[in-house]
């Protein structure tokens, strides 16, 4: 049971790295808190559901459609919203209020459009039969989702650390005003990061029907709570710390489900309290300041 819980936690944690990645990228670059993150993920989930239901599009292929559409929506949304928020005295608080309102609107519209019942995509679409990993048997959907999540993390790593755009994005993350003073087009860099952040949430949504049982318009609230725990544990503002936070969350959740199952929903809060008491800057907190 122990070995299974650790391996399952690794796979589940990889998925939750992907879930938190977009949120942390947006926070890291813009210092705004996207409380509609879970709802963006929900929209990605419904996009994958309808693409599959109407056109039979494989979820792995719908990643590309979701990525393109969400970046295309995120880019102008940035120019419409974020510069105004950043001009405020307290942009973080204002962003919380704004995105909370946006979240409510998205949930209401999605409920009207899709209904409130559970929806999902058959697990066999991602592969038939369980896969064996180190002698343990896991659903194919989990293994594929874990693999895609790892690729998404690698994509973000390459984007941030191996491209010119990534260098300037990290410069903006370290100090927005100094980046502006050095001639970096901060708004363009931020708009791209915002679009990619939303797209990563959307991609996480594509796999939500496989990892979270089913999807509903109201699923965003729980996702938000878990995502915040993941990124705070990993380190706020450091997208790669999210990977560590996600894996810590995944393994802890599987241990809780194995040994203290009734209390498993307390885990995000327990992790948050523990990390804030022991290491408030998060597991990779130092690195973000020297990035």
């Amino acid at each position: 049971m122990l070995a299974y819980a650790i391996l399952a936690g690794l796979i589940f944690g990889l998925y939750f790295s992907l879930v938190g990645l977009g949120l942390n990228l947006v926070f890291g670059v813009m210092r705004i808190v996207n409380l509609a993150h879970g709802d963006v993920l929900m929209l990605g989930a419904f996009a994958a559901f309808w693409l599959f239901k109407l056109f039979g599009l494989h979820p792995v292929l719908s990643i590309f459609a979701v990525f393109a559409v969400f970046v295309a929506v995120g880019w102008p949304l940035y120019y419409l919203v974020v510069p105004r928020l950043l001009r405020a005295k307290d942009p973080e608080m204002l962003s919380i209020i704004f995105f909370f309102g946006l979240s409510q609107v998205i949930v209401a519209l999605a409920s009207i459009a899709f209904g409130s019942s559970e929806r999902s995509i058959p697990g066999r679409v991602l592969g038939s039969g369980p896969y064996q990993i180190l002698g343990q048997s896991f659903p194919a959907a989990w293994v594929v989702t874990g693999g895609v999540s790892a690729l998404a993390v690698a994509f973000v790593y390459l984007y941030l650390y191996r491209t010119r755009l990534g260098y300037v994005t990290r410069a903006v993350m370290v100090h927005r005003e100094e980046a502006l003073a050095t001639g970096i087009d901060v708004h363009r860099v931020s708009a791209i990061a915002f679009g990619i952040g939303l797209a990563l949430s959307g991609i996480a949504g594509v796999f939500a029907p496989f990892m979270l049982g089913s999807v509903t318009p109201a699923m965003g609230v729980d996702i938000n709570i878990t995502s915040f725990a993941v990124i705070v544990v990993g380190s706020l503002g450091n997208p790669l710390g999210t990977v560590l936070g996600g894996i810590a969350y995944g393994i802890s959740l599987m241990f809780m489900q194995t040994y203290f199952s009734s209390w498993a929903n307390l885990l995000p809060y327990l992790l948050l309290i523990t990390i804030l008491l022991v290491r408030p800057s998060g597991l990779l907190g130092r690195k973000v300041r020297s990035a």
């Binding site: 659903p139 990892m211 979270l212 049982g213 599987m254 489900q257 194995t258 929903n265």
Partner: peptide
């Protein structure tokens, strides 16, 4: 004989534990 929170959405590990 175990309880899980009502918002539980993943049972893979629990099923493995039951199977054991």
């Amino acid at each position: 004989d175990n309880g899980v929170p009502t918002n539980t959405s993943s049972y893979t590990v629990t099923i493995n534990n039951i199977q054991a």
